[in-house]
Structures are given as C-alpha cells and as structure tokens.
Computed example of a mutant assay.
Amino acid sequence: MKAKFFSIVSLSFSLLVFASCKKQNKGDEALPKPNVPNSLANTIFQKILLDQKMVNVPISFNLEKASYYLDSRTSIVPIDLVSVDKKIATTKYFVTKTDENGKVNAENYYVILSAGKNNVAVTPDLLSGKKISADFDGAIIRYDKDNNFVSSNHFENGNLSPKTDKIEVRKSKSPEPTPGYAPLNQGCSYITVDWYWQTYVNGVLVNEEYLYTTQIVVCEDGDGSGGGTGSTTCEQAQAFLNAGSAQSGTLNSVDVFNNGMIWKKTYNWLIFQAGTWGLLSFDQATFEKIHYASNNTDRWEFIDFQHQHLAEIGANIGGTRTFLDLGATINILPGRTSVWDRVDYSVTSKPLNCLPAVTTVLNSQKSFNAPNTFVIVE
C-alpha cells in the first residue's frame, strides 16, 4: 500500500452562495520626504547622540511581519531604519504585552545581536532569557518605549556572560549623498551615520562590529524630521486623523490540537494599519478528516470557524487610538474546504490637540483554506 500526496486546488467561489452563514456579535509605507517635514506626523523617531547633538532617526514598524504569541499575549514587531532612499532591516524589535481585553500594558524595544549574523528566532522566551539556544552567541539589549537604555545581557554558547553590549553611532567618513537627493529646507543637511555593535568587559571595549549605514536629515535645531520643534501642529493632527485603512494582511497560524481526525488551528492577521499602529484579528478553525470511498481519498474539511478577539500592535505618535470589536460574519463555503470571514470593528482616533476624536467603522475580509494536501490510498 502506497500513499501519494497531491496539492488540492482551492475552490473558486462566489460570496453570493454560502454553505452556512453566522453572525457573531461582540461589543511599502512611503518614505518620508525630507523637504516636507509635516509628512512625518505618523513616523516614530529614535534619538541618537551625534557630534554632541541629539538628532532624530526615523524608524518604521513592519507590522506585516509582526508575530503574536497568544499564551503570553506578546506581540513582536520588527523595526526598519528609514534611510533617505530606502528602509534598512535591523535587529531591533518593538515588543508589547496586552491584557485579557487586548489592551497594551507594557511596551519595550529590544535589539537582538548574534555573532556571525546568524538568524535567531525572536520569541518571548528568548527576550526573557527563559529559553536560550545552546549555540546562541550574542546580546539582548532592552530599551524602554522612549528608547532609553534599560539592560544588556551577553550570551556565549547559550550561557549568560559578564560582558555588556551597546549600540554606537558615528558620523560616517563616507561621502555625503549626491546632489540628486531631494532639496532640503534651509538649515538642514544630509548626514551619513555608521552603526556599530560594541562589547565591553569591566568597562573596557573588547570588540566592535560594523552593522549598517543610514543617511538622515539633520537641521540646525537638531530635529532630524526636517525642521520644527517636534510639537504636533494642527496640520499634523489632521494627518493623524486621516491615517489608517482596513487591511487583509498575511495569515499566521498555530496548531492547537491534532489527533489525526480532528485538527484545531488559531489564526491571526492584520486587519487595520495607521502608520506604526495596527490591529490583529484572531480566529480559530476546527477541521475533521473525511474519507471519500468513491475515490478512496481523505480530506480535511471545516466543521467550525470562530472569530475570537482583536489585539493592537505597534505604537501611536501624535495621538491615541482605541478600538471596538463589532463581531464577524463567517461563511463556510460549499465543499467545506474554504471559509470567508468578514470582521467588523471601529477605530477611534484622537489627536493630541486642535481636533476632536473621530470614530470610523470598518471591515476587513479574508479567505481561509483547509490544509491543502490529501492522501490517496492504493
């Protein structure tokens, strides 16, 4: 007896025809233009000390690559540095923890550095130091939500070491950007910055490793955003209100249970993004393995699909945002190998000044497919 595995071709469908329908009721971001400073209303900045002056480096939250860990209610969002002509993937992460209602109650930045630049799986256990791989040689540096240094842990062969680590920045000796870059406001200039990983023993530098180079805009008042004091203007308040849209983000799944006949999976996906802040929807599917004697095949089919809750990720700048979960419309399609899910929700955005809060009601939609392999028994 042999088993052969084939990919299932997903069923095409119309949303006008449903096998079942139920309603559950529950209460490449554009690069900033240096010559238009107010366009940065929804950009997060990291302050760095450069030539004895504090300047701002814009950073971007990559919400599409965010990971969420249900057991610890922790979200981990990769951070990109925004250079004047591109985004640079770094080793920095914004980490939040939420309460049982999905509200954020802890926010920190972490930098994960690995000797030899080996890929490291960034998880809550790694960040807490509970589970460190035996081959991990590197550092975990923690900052508060304002990017102030909190702690540094250095590891060698997975063991905690007395060494300490820091990120050092220097004005680069490389040539500054060519005149082909966008014109700047008066008093502003392009600066090239080199980033380094430094390791110390008893306060003595024992190793330095180059990480990457970025190009930023620095103005006479020290504000890397291209001018101004950094306060929220009424124009920026309007930009804060206008930011944000419904999404149908990448689907992430986690197996909850599988005994060979019944399979439960949880899903999370980005449904809303406003700059550096977003919402994830959490859903759970239950599958049953069905045997078809006519062609001697086994197939996983949906027997249940539930919308569970929403959770926020990332951070806001220039105001606050709150949300309400308004439930979901779920349709298990003919053949029970596909589900269509529409999540309804509202987002209330409140700028720091000038304008009142605005509430917007939205919905996001996503298709889910049963596990896409089946077995033919001969």
Rank of each mutant, 00 (worst) to 15 (best):
Ile8Phe: 10
Leu81Ile: 06
Ala121Arg: 12
Met54Ile: 11
Asn42Gly: 07
Asp99Val: 05
Thr360Arg: 13
Thr98Gln: 12
Ile290Val: 15
Asp144Phe: 08
Val339Leu: 08
Lys265His: 05
Ala285Trp: 13
Leu333His: 01
Tyr210Val: 02
Asp51Arg: 09
Trp300Asn: 11
Trp277Met: 05
Gln247Tyr: 00
Ile290Tyr: 07
Lys53Leu: 14
Ser7Met: 09
Lys87Ala: 07
Asn252Ser: 14
Trp263Gln: 09
Lys163Leu: 13
Thr164Pro: 07
Ala134Lys: 09
Thr373Leu: 14
Trp269Glu: 01
Gly224Met: 02
Asp221Trp: 02
Gln24Leu: 02
Ile376Lys: 13
Ala357Leu: 12
Lys23Ile: 04
Tyr69Leu: 04
Asn295Gln: 14
Gln284Ala: 05
Asp255Thr: 15
Tyr190Met: 08
Asp80Asn: 15
Ile290Asp: 13
Gly116His: 10
Lys131Gln: 05
Gln273Arg: 15
Glu64His: 04
Gln306Trp: 14
Asp135Pro: 00
Leu333Tyr: 02
Gln46Trp: 08
Gln273Tyr: 03
Ser294Thr: 11
Ser253Trp: 05
Leu352Asp: 04
Arg73Ser: 06
Asn25Glu: 10
Thr74Trp: 01
Tyr200Met: 10
Lys97Asn: 10
Arg321Pro: 01
Phe368Asp: 00
Arg321His: 05
Ala293Cys: 03
Asn118Val: 08
Ile330Glu: 04
Cys188Ala: 11
Asn35Gly: 15
Phe368Asn: 02
Asp80Thr: 07
Ala89Met: 09
Leu15Arg: 08
Glu220Val: 06
Ser253Ala: 08
Val201Thr: 15
Thr348Gly: 04
Ser253Leu: 09
Val377Cys: 11
Gly244Cys: 01
Cys21Lys: 12
Val55His: 00
Val339Asp: 08
